[in-house]
Design a protein around this nucleic acid. Structure first.
Lengths: 110, 110
DNA sequence: CTGATCTACAACCATTTGGTTGTACGATAG
DNA sequence: CTATCGTACAACCAAATGGTTGTAGATCAG
């Protein structure tokens, strides 16, 4: 087997990254505007270190990039990861529609 | 806050369910055809109980339904969960495009 | 009835996850 | 120079995850 191990673990990370409401919120915010890590941390009822970890998870999943600016680390949304996740769900949707079409054919035949 | 706690935990479960390659494979298979739990278990190099747990995770996420048929439990794909996940990613994509449009406007002004 | 099959579920285990506090260090402001 | 800010990272902890084995209840075949 080993279908495409790289892509599989990549998708694992992507969906894992989406599987937390704080991280989904971070993705939304940094897509619209720029935030430093501490700027983000100020928004949530958890420690700076916790938010730092969430950002790291998003970065590993290619949903976010960091760029150093002075002493701050600016977090920005990264379209790449989002597109990959979307592409997979589109693919599933396609499979689903093919199935629906087949079922319609069977009904038409009968 | 408490934005929409129900929906948030629902999304947590959905994306968590997608964050495992075995589960993604199960979703694909049961969308195309019908499988009993043991029928699925035969496909993977892990115990029946492990596959059973994966199916339970998918069921909790509304990505799959089970229906008893004789002594077998038939697993089928459920469009509902897939649509919800897709809708969220579409929403994010929309936010992204709005941002891109705004940036284009700014460039046009300048 | 008996045995095989399919499922459910509990108990256990190692690893990961999501959080904490504490320490250290570079960059900036005064 | 010194104090503060923003960050990084280690160590720790409780809970969840992904796997295992074992036991037990239904259902079906012979």
């Amino acid at each position: 087997m080993v279908v495409d191990q790289l892509r599989e673990t990549e998708l694992d990370r992507l969906f894992q990254a989406f599987a937390d409401s704080t991280r989904r919120d971070i993705v939304r915010r940094v897509t619209v505007g720029e935030f430093s890590v501490s700027g983000l941390a100020a928004l949530y009822a958890m420690s700076f270190a916790a938010v730092q970890k969430h950002v790291a998870v998003l970065e590993r999943a290619s949903l976010v990039t960091k760029e150093k600016r002075g002493r701050a680390q600016i977090v920005r949304g990264n379209h790449e990861g989002l597109q990959k996740a979307r592409r997979l769900l589109d693919e599933y949707e396609h499979i689903w529609r093919q199935r629906a079409a087949r079922m319609a054919d069977i009904l038409a035949e009968g």
